[in-house]
Nucleic acid binder design. Structure first.
Lengths: 188, 188
DNA sequence: GATTCGTTGCACATGAGTGTGCAACAATGG
DNA sequence: CCATTGTTGCACACTCATGTGCAACGAATC
């Protein structure tokens, strides 16, 4: 039965979001299960976190593929990405915390595809003069979606928050304010 | 003799910057001292971190007072702040990590003055229509200087990095690109 | 030379988290 | 009814960081 396993993963992302150093015991309790059961599904705490991250990355990669298929302009694609990430951004903020911390190195690799896609998107934007070049595509993409998650963390995650996250990230990508506001107006 | 005590604090900010969960033992070794000695100066690990934070806040507050005395425009003051923070931004990135993690609540209070100053600065900028209002002054200031520290962390902390951090943070504050570039040109 | 002060090197207690082993138990389905 | 499978509830060993106690040691000071 994968039901329990799935519930553990669901709850783990939540608990670890609250406290990235939460123990297996806390996760188990929150999932309404005993610590021993968690070890039945995941040999070690690291395996749990790995499975958790892989799951999130898979989800996001699918979303990226969808957005990529739209073949829109880079800034419009960025807005589409933020719009789709936003509802679960607060949930997945743990990914940002996980790459620092104890298992940082192990997790960093799993997040590779996500980093790549965003860096590519920013690169395309820079190549077509839609995004600015104050920073390299790699760093700029990291900082920009770092800002999105930071806003999701500080602001209440409501509708106006999504707009604010879009506009703020677009601005720091070098998109002029009028166009940023226009793009944030019509979310797909 | 405060010489040892100071060295411990110096080294602690560095070691904790590498790994916010570093133990007292690691800090002691890095300071060329025995674990027991650290406890001689700081009753508990929390006391160490508190002293460390207080020291950093004191330093930054003095800098803020200086910048504030210049009575320049908010965007120019922001540039001045980033210019002065930059040389030690990589060193003080631990402060961003410390408010999450175990002692987050205890540290958060100490950082109050810093948050206040920056929020006030952004608020002034918004009041005088120099900064945009996609976000409240409190959140916007947090996200903006979060971006500065993120850039200091990812980019090599060189001269061009400082410019990039200024421009990026100014952009997300809503400063138009031409003015942002102009402001970043002449660092005091 | 005696004293003070900071440092050192242990030993020790404590607490918390990890991971394992094993027996019992409930539900599911052949 | 029986067998499989997942869960539970211990007990246990292990590691690791924290914090304390105490004797000894070295250097500077009186």
């Amino acid at each position: 039965m994968n039901e329990t396993r799935d519930r553990i993963l669901d709850v783990a992302v939540e608990v670890l979001g609250e406290d990235p150093d939460a123990g297996v015991g806390e996760i188990a309790s929150a999932a309404g299960v005993v610590r021993r059961t968690v070890y039945g599904h995941f040999p070690s705490r690291l395996d749990l976190i790995r499975a958790l991250t892989e799951r999130a990355v898979t989800e996001m990669s699918a979303m990226f593929a969808e957005v990529n298929a739209s073949a829109a302009a880079p800034d419009a694609m960025w807005v589409a990405v933020v719009a789709r990430i936003w509802p679960v951004a607060h949930r997945y903020r743990v990914l940002l915390a996980l790459r620092r911390g104890e298992y940082g190195a192990a997790i960093h690799g799993l997040l590779g595809p996500v980093d790549e896609f965003l860096a590519d998107l920013v690169q395309q934007g820079q190549d077509s003069d839609v995004f600015a070049r104050h920073l390299s595509a790699g760093v700029l993409s990291q900082v920009a979606y770092g800002a999105v998650f930071a806003i999701a963390d500080n602001d209440l995650s409501n509708e106006t928050g999504a707009r604010a996250a879009m506009i703020t990230s677009l601005l720091m990508l070098g998109v002029p304010e009028p166009r940023a506001i226009a793009l944030a107006g019509n979310q797909p």
